[in-house]
């Protein structure tokens, strides 16, 4: 069998989009949220010698971006197998 049944493909895509949305919410929160919109508020909190808002803008968001892609890869590989659309 080369292709998952039609309903399977639709369900796979739906789950994929839900995962994307979740990850993109985090993507938005760490960069635009913590690094830009809430920067003044978070700058009141120290993290070592960093102010937290500054830290998110210049370090933290980048670490989270890397983590997000690897989480996505892991989850998608599971999803591919669950719906039997993975590659050989």
């Amino acid at each position: 069998m080369n292709h998952a049944p039609e309903s399977g493909a639709a369900a796979y895509w739906k789950e994929n989009v839900r995962l994307l949305m979740t990850l993109l919410v985090v993507w938005f929160v760490v960069s635009y949220g913590a690094g830009i919109l809430l920067v003044d508020l978070l700058n009141q909190i120290p993290l070592g010698g960093y102010k937290l808002g500054f830290f998110f803008a210049q370090q933290g968001s980048i670490y989270v971006f890397v983590a997000l892609i690897f989480i996505y890869v892991r989850k998608m590989n599971q999803l591919d197998r669950k719906y039997d659309v993975h590659e050989e």
Binding site: L23, W27, S61, F65
Partner: peptide
């Protein structure tokens, strides 16, 4: 520049 040029990869 830091967030933009890395966040685009997500």
């Amino acid at each position: 520049y830091l967030m933009g040029w890395t966040g685009g990869y997500v």
